[in-house]
Design a protein around this nucleic acid. Sequence first.
DNA 1: TTATTATTGAAAATCATTTTCATTATTGAA
DNA 2: TTCAATAATGAAAATGATTTTCAATAATAA
Lengths: 161, 161
Amino acid sequence: MRYGRRHLRRGYGMGHGWWQGRFRGCGYRITVPREEILSVLSNTSEHLSAEEIYMKVHKTYPGLGLTTVYRTLELLEEMGIVIRIDAGDGRARYELAEGPKGRRHHHHLICAKCGKVIDYTDFIEDEKELISKTESGLSKKYKFKILNHEITFYGLCDACK
Amino acid sequence: MRYGRRHLRRGYGMGHGWWQGRFRGCGYRITVPREEILSVLSNTSEHLSAEEIYMKVHKTYPGLGLTTVYRTLELLEEMGIVIRIDAGDGRARYELAEGPKGRRHHHHLICAKCGKVIDYTDFIEDEKELISKTESGLSKKYKFKILNHEITFYGLCDACK
DNA sequence: TTATTATTGAAAATCATTTTCATTATTGAA
DNA sequence: TTCAATAATGAAAATGATTTTCAATAATAA
């Protein structure tokens, strides 16, 4: 007897992501939707929106709901596994903060017209000194506990200019 | 006979903003809503959302519609008179790019909890070299025409930490 | 295997922003 | 000043991304 089940089951073949430990540690469950979403994020260098992630996962796992994508991304962002980028076009994009291979610290180049986001890792060395100096100065002066920084250049990409 | 008019008329007392020339130059009309919105933006050091601007203007000019605020802000952003800031809390905030007195180049410190935005002008000198170097390097490498940059620190403000 | 309860998906609800459209106000020309 | 052309406006409806609600389902510990 076959059963038309909407849901995959997790099994031996499923791989044991580097992130699973962190999930367990926080008391979160490891589920198929979460595995699928993280798999998509791990296998792209693009900056995907919630809907784009939904569509990609949907191909192999049609049971997925868009709601779950949003919920998962929110969770992943809270855990620092994922970074949300606001390209200013009304929908957020997401990228892995640090993957299994350890992504390098980088910043963004955003096209003001089409919203395309490019990572760049150039000049990070030169940046370090400025950032640490600025960070300690600001933290003192404005009584901010600084957690993160972001350098973004806006402009027009090759195709749009 | 009195008439309950919903609309103020522009008159001699209304002041001649530094921005009016730019409006005329672009073929845009100078209207009361635009004057009022720019007046609010000129008289605050806060980073206001469209709705906050609407509420402030509404006190002296109840005829104003929220739609007009959005439309005006869009126009002002296009003209480079206003800068939109995405604090990541789902609504954009706006600030004057450069006022009559000429605001200094600055960057932002954003509280990840309450969304508060603080301008800082510290370390701008140190920043210059890095930025110009980065800018020319990126522009060449990625064929981007760079128009603008943004440095933002995220953290917790004194009240939230 | 079972009980507990976190997670899920669908549908409805939100909420900021945009669009539509008829009305009104600004502007340049007469 | 008056007038005609049309840009700008406000109200209401539409949009679109994201969030909430709630009953059903699946992951986990015992």
